[in-house]
Design a protein around this nucleic acid. Structure first.
Lengths: 254, 254
DNA sequence: CAGTGGTCTAGACCACATT
DNA sequence: ATGTGGTCTAGACCACTGT
């Protein structure tokens, strides 16, 4: 990786023939992240050292890091270093939790575990999690409250293979968020989410949990959480009572 | 703007004391864009010329342009030039239209004008459009169909002062999209949108338009469209029948 | 003070589009 | 052939953090 651009072996029409050096560096950094060489919260080596290691200019290293920072995988702190992104409460609240009060400020939800079960993947779960139908999964149901009022019912499905030995205790005694659990206990970092939203009529088993009348409209959110390289790790179906809350979406450069 | 970083006059704690040169350049480019020096579709001067004009290095110019490209205000095309972003159909479809079929590919909606009226801004419109209550506005109602089925009712409100002489004809005879109308006829470019979503029960006047039964759940989207410098130019309340469609949200680095 | 990321330079060369 | 944006270099200096 000494000089300039590298050429791919198979020249396909329409596909760029060359890969910029900084993208190759980015890929190597991503591999190291996915491989756990540096863990969430760790500092990666300083830019000057990375430049030396790869035998390239510091500007090229910066360019690779720039993209990883833009994708929320790394966090730069001037004077301190560059760190692997970690799921602290604030980061989660602002990046992955989009339900806000219609009046008032964003707040932390209080989570209560309602159910935990082993199950087999149905069609939806198998498609969304990219596993086979019938593969073992865990199903978790949570009730989220805001300002003391129950507002959201979360139904979570994860592959048992990706979360070996997951137990109900982990959810019940959980001091922080689910994504923190994934990260700290199973080494899986959620990097990105894709969500699809619909309006539905409340289900008979959910109505009493959210204290809404039968036939009330609910916002349904189907979220797939992705880790590095867009590998899906969690399917979450949320039902939100939007009487006093709403879903906030600021779409940029998708 | 010759050498390095500039210092702001009022040193406030917490606020950076220096502004990078490339941000100053970015601001000047944004001013030129907002002022109409270059219009949508135009090429801006080449990077080498901008560097010369401002007496700075080309790398610094590129940095400024990079940010404007990331914010969808400029579009780079290698070998051709850098162009002011324009609202062509595809761009609109992918950046501002988030309703997709539950099965199948994204498609263009067919728009039918249902109503056009002068009105006075109510509380919501005045807040969202940052004008005074009672200021003159235009209200437009559109019915959007996908695959021949009516799916969305849009209620649009814009300030009459910002769109002088807007007429019903412009909407009825419209060959392209509303945002194209704003851009081409009034010189207003929508750069960004912020949306809030709720589940509601269908209104009596909307139910027949979407051919849904009374009491059916609808997805309500409140969208504010912003032009340069986050000036709000349009309030749009959409009611979506999500029986066969859904709202698609890929949230990154908000 | 040393070490880190942040900014900026001046230029070379490459890839691509147009003439 | 010319002109555009895209990549990469080698280094200087600044701003910030921690010791």
């Amino acid at each position: 990786m000494a000089k300039a651009t590298t050429t791919t072996d198979a020249p396909f029409p329409g596909v760029p023939l060359t890969t910029p050096l900084y993208r190759e560096v980015k890929r190597q950094l991503m591999d190291a992240l996915a491989g756990g060489e540096w863990k969430p919260g760790d500092a990666i080596p300083p830019e000057r050292r990375l430049a030396e290691r790869y035998g390239i200019s510091i500007g090229t290293v910066r360019r690779a890091i720039d993209e990883l920072v833009a994708e929320n995988m790394l966090i730069r702190q001037q004077g301190r270093g560059t760190f692997v992104a970690s799921h602290n409460r604030d980061r989660l609240l602002f990046y992955f939790f989009h339900v806000v009060p219609q009046d008032g400020a964003k707040e932390y939800p209080v989570v209560r575990l309602l159910g935990f079960a082993k199950a087999k993947a149905d069609k939806l779960a198998s498609e969304m999690l990219q596993i086979a139908i019938g593969d073992p999964i865990f199903r978790i149901r949570n009730l989220l409250s805001l300002s003391g009022e129950p507002v959201i019912v979360d139904d979570i499905a994860v592959s048992a293979a990706r979360f070996p030995g997951m137990a109900e205790r982990a959810f019940r005694d959980r001091p922080s968020t689910v994504y923190n659990l994934y990260q700290d206990t199973f080494g899986i970092s959620v990097v990105r989410t894709v969500e699809r939203l619909r309006a539905t009529t409340v289900d008979h088993d959910i109505a009493p949990l959210l204290r809404v009348a039968p036939g009330a409209p609910l916002l349904e959110i189907r979220r797939v959480a992705l880790t590095y390289s867009d590998v899906p790790v969690e399917l979450r179906i949320s039902h939100v009572n939007t009487a006093h809350h709403e879903y906030w979406s600021e779409l940029k450069q998708v």
